[in-house]
Write a protein that binds this DNA or RNA. Structure first.
Lengths: 198, 198
DNA sequence: CAATATACGTCAGTGTTGTTGACATATCTC
DNA sequence: GAGATATGTCAACAACACTGACGTATATTG
């Protein structure tokens, strides 16, 4: 509880210090963003992304692959014929990093290279049958999560703020992206901040 | 371009194969989700999150800290008095992993520990003045990005799909979370998939 | 009070994924 | 043919996660 804090000199223990302090609300014509809500969105994005990549992570682990492999598979699957340079630009990693995981995927036959037609220096990347099957499975669970979050956003009571703008929508979407069993924990955590702000 | 594909036997190079194939649209009463749009959201989430953590990453790098330090600072800052166990549950990492970064932050005086009052085994975590100042700065840029994305979502033309549900809203929000200079690249990438799907 | 459980810290080893720097090879462009 | 470009590779290193094992302080319980 927040009264446990003894206001020691060097400690900045105040209820969610500074936070936003009438942060620039970028021309939001329907009133300024309530300070706490945006903080919630920042954290919801963290939790949502964690669960979003959690499913694929677990599935890939069974193949001995990691998240880096997933990203390569994903973009090669969805954009067949991608070149190395394009993939590097998408992933924003070094070619050495890419090559390590790409080599795994090629050796295991999930991705194949084809020499470019117009430019024979290029190695166009494609998924093999097995790579496509695997990636389709990964995509399926991620698409399902997103589609459900869009279709059934979680109604927000904690903040209570009924803002016609996108705050409530974004919050509902992100909360719905979180694993259902974990939503209560997230909600009660954020309620703790809201409480200490009173 | 997709006609570059020569339909080799072992290659699954079709235009965005399987993808969704009338994926379960979980009781979406306003029509099923167009297959491509949800795929876009999956990728937008990747790009949005990348830029979302990019700013703090760069700022922390100057202090010799990384993303793990940021996460600890963030939650200790926003939830002063957090215990180790609570933090572990939030971050979902092992105590060894936490301890490594936490030790850095404590040694450098950004975080302080206080023995719990009711339970003297607990180490309650608080930000020091410097830790609070640093974290407030990190929070500021993240909150600004989110607040702007909510206030000025990016209108979607690429998909053209005008769906009253949350798809357009989510897409606009996530696209607005992406660094402005990079949006064109993302849009043209996803247009490439849409093109190959015709 | 003694036994057990809990909260936390730490040592040691390992794996994934990122980095930098240097260098090689094939191919395209001028 | 010279130089730029696309890709591959070797080596070293760092951040951040993991497992397993063990130690200490404090709380709880029979």
């Amino acid at each position: 509880m927040s009264p446990d804090v003894t206001r020691q000199s060097t400690l900045a223990t105040g209820p969610d210090p500074l936070s936003l302090s009438e942060e620039e609300d970028g021309q939001a014509e329907s009133g300024p963003a309530p300070e706490g809500v945006t903080n919630d969105l920042v954290e919801l994005l963290f939790f949502a992304y964690r669960d979003f990549v959690g499913d694929p992570d677990r599935m890939l682990a069974e193949y001995g692959f990691g998240r880096a492999h997933h990203r390569v598979l994903h973009f090669v699957y969805h954009y067949p014929g991608l070149t190395i340079a394009e993939l590097l630009d998408i992933l924003r990693i070094t070619k050495q990093s890419l090559n390590r995981v790409l080599k795994d995927l090629i050796e295991q036959g999930h991705i194949v290279q084809k020499t470019g037609r117009s430019d024979r220096r290029q190695r166009l990347l494609y998924c093999s049958e097995t790579g496509a099957t695997l990636t389709a499975e990964l995509t399926r669970v991620q698409v399902r999560r997103v589609a459900r979050a869009i279709a059934d956003p979680v109604a927000d009571e904690p903040t209570g703020a009924r803002d016609g703008n996108g705050f409530a929508a974004a919050q509902g979407f992100l909360m719905a992206m979180i694993e259902p069993e974990e939503r209560a924990a997230v909600t009660s955590l954020m309620a703790r901040r809201a409480r200490s702000r009173r």
